[in-house]
Amino acid sequence: MNLQTLLYIGGRLIKGVIILLIIAVFNFFLIRAAPGDPAKVMAGEAGATDEVFLQQLREQFGLDQPLYYQLWVYISNLLHFDMGMSYRQNIPVFDLIMDRLPATLLLTGTAFLLSIALGVLAGVIASVNYKKWVDSLITILSLIFYATPLFWLAIMASLFFSVYLGWLPGFGMETVGVELSGWDRVIDIALHLVLPATTLGLFFTAVYARMTRTSMIETSRLDFVKTAIAKGMTPSRVTRKHVLRNALLPVITLAGIQAGQLIGGAVLTETVFAWPGIGRLMFEALFQRDYNLLLGVFFISSAMVVLFNLITDVIYCVVDPRIELSK
């Protein structure tokens, strides 16, 4: 990796941090826009409503300070990984989220890899068999999965595979009440992962399959493919060495953009399967009107998207030699 590439990635990193800061500011104002006085909400939890106690709370949380000062405190706290307390659980928001984050990373990561692998494969197969029945089948299937609500698919899958057939666990991340360790635990988690990851991944599989198919067909009409054919290559070599690599570039870009959708989708999947990740945490926060926690989860999931985008940028850099020329 040369200097220009590193500078490029550095630039993207700085951009990501700036975006996160802006989201943080946005978050701060959203908390202020939430209904009710935060002090009253907190006091309500504690069961007391007298004015002296409210004043104490305001001082304790700096709510009596001017807005710009509060914003400054909020941002600087954020830089120290301090996102305030959960109103309801009285535990630091950051700790709550970090406790749940690995489960979400496992779920979304698996679903992401699965959907990319399956989607690209399906797209390539469809494009190679352009306008034959395999192509039609893949196109129809991806249209159907593209149209099916994620949460409904999750419910139906758990009903069928877990309740009706009894093949796979449809609830939680580990079997309750049994202490497992080592490989047994890994296998147990893996089994629990199958349904949530598949249902979350299927929608994105459809997205990637359609994108790959279109991109493959467009790329195969480009001039350098003609050159490759004129060299006397077999069609499969032309596809592998020349069409596929070029066709994957827009898919990589899309993968980065879709990362955000994937994390949003996790809220639904985790809710249906009771998967103990930040998506479910968000759902819980929603129900308990725990706005500080809600916005904390929102911020962390944005940070995850920035991270995913950065990873796709790096991959793009490695795959496309032309990137160093553009800014």
């Binding site: 975006i19 994390i263 949003g264 929603l286 989860v297 929102f298 999931s301 998207v305």
Partner: peptide, 21 residues
Amino acid sequence: TEIFQTVPSFALAIVIVAIFE
């Protein structure tokens, strides 16, 4: 535009609806 595109859209929609009832 980029900021809005980076934010996970479904999560943003949840937050907006939750905060504004």
